[in-house]
Simulated assay, not measured.
Amino acid sequence: MMNVADTTLALAGIFQSAELVRQVARKGIVEHSAFDSSIKSVLKIDASSTEDVYGGLQGVKLGLQILVAQLGSQSRVNDRELMRYVLGILFLERKLIKKQEMLQTVQQGVQQAQRLAETSHTTDPEVVALLANLYSETISTFQHRIQVSGEQRHLENPLNANKIRSLLLSGIRSAVLWRQKGGNRWQLLFSRKKILQFAKDSLERIRKMEQFG
């Protein structure tokens, strides 16, 4: 059964990963706090709640903002590049779930990255590289691949390439969570207003938390 709160946060996690991929590819820089939260979501294997996956509402703030911009009535034209990444992530998640052996490999790789992060930092280049390599050796072997657009000089930078792959993995992690909480494409059509309202309410909660500490 669908839970609007949980599915909206997980959906925001997907949109956040997609937006961060675009930031890295086009600008060579990334919003650090959002990047940190997205990578942590991959490593958060045992979470007490959907919010906890992202370290609280603030961890998915960027994703909620992007979600509101995409679903809001003021946006008549969807961001095609962003939606291409989001739909690609959702497609690859479906492919991964059907490959139990690959899924197990991904889970083992994430556990290894989690252990490494415990001795360094979530966004340590070695942790990000490990997750990126895991993506390359598993999900990236599917015939369908997400074609990332951007500045060639940024895309050719090994550190940026690792960030992009690790972010795509975080997007797929959020997509798995979204499905687990009852999310599906029909929900995007028939529960659009509920999703939009919850995202707006969440952003207001975040604003108050930031204002009053």
Rank of each mutant, 00 (worst) to 15 (best):
R165L: 04
L11D: 06
N184L: 08
G72Y: 03
R205F: 06
F212L: 10
R173P: 03
F142W: 04
I206G: 05
L62P: 02
I14H: 02
S73C: 04
T123Q: 13
G55H: 02
L131K: 04
L90F: 11
F142T: 01
F15R: 08
L130H: 15
S149D: 00
L155K: 10
N184F: 07
L131N: 06
R80H: 14
V24D: 03
V110K: 02
D201S: 10
L9M: 10
S202L: 07
E93Y: 05
A18T: 08
V42M: 00
W186S: 12
S73Q: 08
E31Q: 14
K27M: 15
N3L: 11
V60F: 05
L87N: 08
A69M: 07
V176R: 14
G13E: 10
L196I: 01
H154N: 12
G150S: 11
A47R: 09
H121Y: 05
K27H: 11
S17R: 10
T50Y: 10
V127M: 02
I45E: 12
A69Q: 03
A69S: 05
Y54T: 04
V106N: 08
Q108E: 15
L189R: 06
S38C: 01
R165N: 14
N3Y: 15
I97C: 08
S174L: 03
S170V: 00
K95S: 03
Q107A: 10
S166H: 06
R207V: 07
M102Y: 05
S48L: 09
S120E: 07
G63D: 06
E204S: 14
K181A: 15
R192N: 10
S191H: 07
Q104G: 08
E101H: 08
S75L: 12
L168M: 03
I29R: 01
S17Y: 08
N3V: 01
G183K: 11
E81P: 01
K193M: 09
L203Q: 15
R22T: 00
K40E: 09
S140C: 13
L11V: 07
I139N: 01
Q65K: 13
Q197R: 11
T119V: 11
S49K: 13
H144R: 03
I206H: 07
I89T: 00
Q107K: 15
Q100K: 14
E101D: 14
V128K: 08
S75Q: 13
R26K: 04
Q187C: 09
V21G: 12
D52M: 05
E204R: 12
K208N: 10
H144Q: 00
A175W: 09
S140H: 13
W186P: 12
W186N: 15
E137Q: 14
L62S: 12
V106F: 04
N133D: 14
L134P: 05
K200R: 12
F35H: 13
S136M: 06
S140W: 05
Y85R: 09
R207P: 00
T123S: 07
L167G: 09
